[in-house]
Design a protein around this nucleic acid. Sequence first.
RNA 1: AGGGGCGUAGCUCAGUGGUAGAGCAGCGGCCUUUUAAGCCGAAGGUCGUGGGUUCGAUCCCCACCGCCCCUACCA
Length: 569
Amino acid sequence: MGGFLPSRLREGAHYTRAGGRPVESLTLPVAPAILPHDSFGKDLRLPFEPLDQFLQRQKKLEQIAALGHDPYPHKFDYTATPAEVVEKYGTRTAAKLDTERVLVRVAGRILTMRLHGKAGFAHIHGQGKRLQIYVKLDVVGEPGFQLFQLLDMGDVIGVAGHLFRTKTNELTIWVEQLTLLTKALLPLPEKWHGLADVELRYRQRYLDLLVSEGVREIFTRRAQIVRELRNFFDARGYIEVETPMMQPLAGGATARPFITHHNTLDINLYLRIATELYLKRLLVGGLDRVYEINRNFRNEGISTQHNPEFTMLEFYQAYSDYRDLMDLSEELLTGLVQQVCGTTQIHYGEHEIDFRRWERLSMREAICRHWPTAAGAAPTGQQLAAAGGPRAAVERYNAWARGGHAEPTASAAKFSDGELTGLLFEAVAEPKLIQPTLLYDYPTDLSPLSKCRPDDPLLAERLEIFIGGLELGNAFSELNDPAEQERRFREQVAHGGEEVPKEVDMDYIRALCHAMPPAAGEGIGIDRLTMLLTDSHSIREVILFPLLRPEARSLAASAGERPDPGDAK
RNA sequence: AGGGGCGUAGCUCAGUGGUAGAGCAGCGGCCUUUUAAGCCGAAGGUCGUGGGUUCGAUCCCCACCGCCCCUACCA
């Protein structure tokens, strides 16, 4: 415990720390204890800040218990959630409600309170909607009203009563019976602005979900996206599987893995960087259509588009090539946008994106198409295909760029024509790919897991999906020649580097030797897809608990320890 | 990793080289149809941490910690 609170909340923390020894108690005002003292006489209350409000609410909870209420009841039978009540009765007239006298039992969290002496209003929140309640002394009686006066914003309560409309015509529950379900010992964030501190929003996402506009919708939409993806593949005869996240070799992509350790086996394992090689083993095993939606882990940088753990859909289908996936990708994404957003034209930042108009471009075509006119005549496809052609184009581009027009691209002599084509694409075309685009025919040098085009071994049958400037998906005609695969693996290992496996995955080669049918496979980044469909511009907005640096220093400080000066670099 | 920005009450934010301010939340009081309810009163702060300059630092300088943004690698 203890990794989740901002340092300010930990000031004065004196619960047991990880080592099990009780931590020195800091000076605290005397207050009623809910939890007992331990055998050392240390106070085991949980003194979080704001301390005065925490203690105040503990006191109220005791008073509520003294009134005969169970402070932590086990359940509450409700007839509808606040959202359901609003949905069902939101348009019913006051007169109709008066004659019908609709009885409801509703549970929710108090988000606002307005007390008026011997009566009061509150809003309770449930399933993303607010519903007003009205509590009156002469309706709930003296004991019920005492309880009401001991409630705070943030408390979870249950109410029973009938629906009516106030003078201002707001649908409201006329509360006849009030029950505390859980007392909040800490207050909610400020009610106008909610949580503005981005760090606090991520660290205390539960509060963010309660008080920040739209956050709940992002994650319900994310769930909907995943659900629709499953529906799509399930309806087409794909089997959903779960392959190992802990792997003896981290293959299937070029990325630095995380390392973990299994004690009993006494071996190091890698957290997977891709599902690819296991899913293709399943193709060998006769699962001709197979998909997996789950986490990959890459020990690399963090940015608005990268989180160390991220969610990927990967799917494979036998007896197909990447051209089949072009059609499938369009169908999948266009249908998904229609279902999730209710339209095929969406906004992403300043862009209007139209899923009715897909573009298909080869990488060379994309370069020709988006070549800056100011940099002279665009190279032709034949020029880019010719030996030395990409280098000539890069040199022309850089000559123009160095005039202060753009960032010149790398052009070291060791780069192959294929690599230079890739660099040129990234410099010239990639930022321009806003409308849904299928980019295909990558240089073979950039695509070690892909089959080559039969008519041109310099080109790989590879496809990427670009939308809104985001790289959303990546697909191949999968390499299934075990000898060629082993050759490429050995080349990789020889090349070395942290982002390359240390040895050849011979188990995978053996699987290929049992014959993997010709197949096409594709990966789609779920986080980025969610960004696109929720108009979010940081991956952290679509991940509930993005990775943040733990607050090790302040934790140690609040536990009464000085950080080791040797660590202070 | 490099560049830029931010860190002041529990939350949202002002502010100044001379010992700190508002709103919300909380506390006490009034208020039986409110809507950011209102009115009255009192309380709440090692101004991120550590150094330095200064008679004096929350403010200026340096280092560190954390977060955000941009760039680079990556999906």
